[in-house]
């Protein structure tokens, strides 16, 4: 069990954010932790760990429990060498991020999910279909992308780091199921 009780009864959990470059992983963390959004794009190199104490939730015995998330914002990558796999080690949760305007960002997730699950078979997973503010919900193209996401067969939410849409819900989905 990769959790250690702190004196304040907070339980630490490592949560990894994974997905192709430019899908908005850093923006989702920034929105969730600092409630801010920056329009400029800066590629993440390696990994950046940000801490956030989340509001108490009820565990499976209906007792209140409070987590401190160590959120691993991992650089977008298409290859899975040992260096990348090391980032995944010991994670309790995985948030896979797709860009609703880029179908290829969904295609690469299939492999990412498989590798992550192989390393962390008991981790709780969810998917953020991000940039909802940009995608045209009326277009055929959007439907195709959402259908691809649906085919990945994991829980997903449409999100927008820009507007904050569903961002809290995404992280609390994990908090309620860890």
């Amino acid at each position: 069990m990769s959790a250690r009780m702190e004196s304040s009864n907070l339980i630490k959990k490592k949560i990894c954010l994974l997905g192709s470059f430019g899908v908005g992983k850093t923006s989702l963390v920034r929105r969730f932790v600092f409630d801010e959004f920056k329009d400029n794009y800066l590629s993440t190199i390696g990994v950046k760990v940000t801490e956030k104490i989340v509001a108490p939730v009820l565990d499976s015995n209906h007792k209140p429990i409070q987590y401190k998330f160590l959120i691993w914002d991992i650089e977008g990558h298409d290859k899975f060498n040992t260096m990348i796999r090391n980032y995944y080690l010991g994670a309790s949760g995985g948030i896979f991020v797709a860009d609703l305007t880029r179908p290829e960002s969904v295609q690469t997730l299939k492999k990412t999910i498989a590798v992550f699950q192989e390393i962390n078979p008991r981790a709780c997973l969810t998917l953020a279909a991000n940039k909802r503010d940009l995608y045209e919900e009326n277009s055929e193209e959007s439907i195709k992308i959402l259908r691809q996401i649906d085919n990945l067969k994991i829980h997903y939410l449409l999100t927008s780091a820009k507007t904050g849409y569903n961002v809290e819900k995404l992280f609390y989905y994990l908090a309620n199921r860890l």
Partner: peptide, 16 residues
Amino acid sequence: PFIENIIPEVFGLEKP
């Protein structure tokens, strides 16, 4: 005294 409490990025790596 534990490394994972001092270097937060090490948290979760206990088994490896």
